Computed example of a mutant assay.
Amino acid sequence: MADLALRFGKDMLAVSSPAEEALRRAGIESVRDQALALLVEPETIEEVYRMEAAAGPQCVVTPVAALTPARLVAIGAEGKGEALADAALAVMAEFKPQHVLVEIGPCGLPLDPESKASLVENRDQYARAAKLFEGRTFDAFFLNGFTAIADLKCALMGLRKVSDAPLIASVEVRADGLLTDGVGTWRESVEVMAEYGAAVAGFSTLATPGAARVLAEQARDALAFQGADLCLMATLQVFERDAKQQGPTEENPYYSPDTMMAAALELRAAGVQFLRAAGQATPAYTGVLAAAVAGLDVASEL
């Protein structure tokens, strides 16, 4: 497995779409059932990744993100964190990906930013999730799905407490630059990512390619102001696949895989290195992203 850090700021990289949508199409809908399938029916998960791997992403994301102690309890997997970590990496190894990203999602605990005890409790949730992968082979942690800056900060601090692996962090962002909690901003999130040791600053959005490009440009400005040198990641949310739709709309800009081609080039022009499709995305979306940026370097003249 190649060292992902050696590729930072160099060649464009496509990231596999989430396994959840494909599993839902197979009738495995809840996070609880997806985790159970990984443990007792791994061939189902392998089939999902077989299709995704054929699409050609350089980076493949592990299938279960509910790895903090609180989330393990919530999905009925208390005490099974190490087994899930082993199973997730075993599925990845089957397809010999270039890079494996270990996804960790929000812990879901109440968080009072004014309370030290609350902050420490949340931070330690993420530290304990990261420790599940101690001594195991992977390329980077992928903190994904965050909607609040305080929670993001706890996650970054928790991982840095126990691991020096590269960190990719991603927050959910609206087209207007606000996080989906309606409080924090994308720019503030980028500043936190830079301050607390992330190597890649990412956003996930339903915004159109043009609006997504503006978000990338805002991140570059924030990083330049701080004198930080982070790579950028963009995840484009597919709201609904609709072959009958006549063209992109603000409500549903990524209605078909073909829409990823122009979006990929738009985001590359804004300095984004990592590209991903999520939501209702299928392996076809990943395939278009991978094909769109195959052999291209990260844009250097911005």
Rank of each mutant, 00 (worst) to 15 (best):
L4S: 09
A5H: 07
L6Q: 10
M12I: 06
L13S: 01
A14T: 07
A14N: 04
V15P: 02
P18V: 03
E21D: 13
A22N: 05
L23D: 02
G27V: 10
I28H: 02
D33P: 04
Q34N: 06
P42G: 04
E43M: 07
T44Y: 00
I45H: 02
E47Y: 02
V48K: 07
R50I: 10
E52T: 15
E52C: 00
A55D: 05
G56H: 06
P57F: 03
Q58G: 13
C59N: 10
V60T: 15
A65H: 13
A65R: 14
A65G: 12
P69R: 09
A70W: 07
R71F: 04
A74C: 09
A74I: 00
G76W: 01
A83G: 05
D86H: 10
A87G: 11
V91R: 00
M92F: 03
E94M: 06
F95Q: 03
K96P: 00
Q98H: 13
V102H: 09
G105S: 11
P106N: 07
D112T: 07
E114W: 05
S115D: 14
K116A: 15
A117P: 02
S118D: 09
L119D: 07
E121V: 14
R123V: 12
Y126Q: 06
Y126S: 04
A127P: 02
A127W: 06
R128T: 14
R128W: 06
K131L: 15
E134K: 13
G135K: 01
R136A: 12
R136E: 11
T137E: 14
D139R: 05
D139M: 07
L143C: 05
G145S: 08
A148L: 05
A150H: 08
A150S: 13
L152F: 09
A155V: 05
L159A: 06
R160K: 15
K161C: 00
P166H: 03
P166K: 04
S170I: 06
S170D: 07
V171M: 12
E172K: 12
V173M: 03
R174T: 01
A175D: 04
L178Y: 13
G182C: 07
V183I: 08
T185Y: 04
R187I: 15
V190D: 02
A198H: 10
A199C: 12
A199R: 14
V200K: 03
A201D: 08
S204I: 14
S204A: 14
T205P: 00
A207T: 01
G210L: 12
G210P: 03
A211P: 00
R213N: 03
R213K: 13
A216N: 02
Q218M: 12
R220C: 04
D229S: 14
L236D: 02
F239Y: 07
E240V: 04
E240L: 09
R241E: 13
D242K: 08
A243N: 13
A243G: 08
A243H: 12
K244D: 13
T249P: 05
T249H: 04
N252P: 07
S256P: 06
D258S: 14
D258K: 10
T259E: 15
M260C: 08
A263M: 01
A264P: 02
G271W: 01
Q273L: 03
L275D: 01
A277F: 04
G279N: 12
T282R: 13
T282E: 12
A284V: 06
V288T: 08
A292K: 09
D297H: 11
V298S: 12
V298Y: 10
A299D: 10
S300C: 05
S300M: 06
S300A: 14
L302I: 08
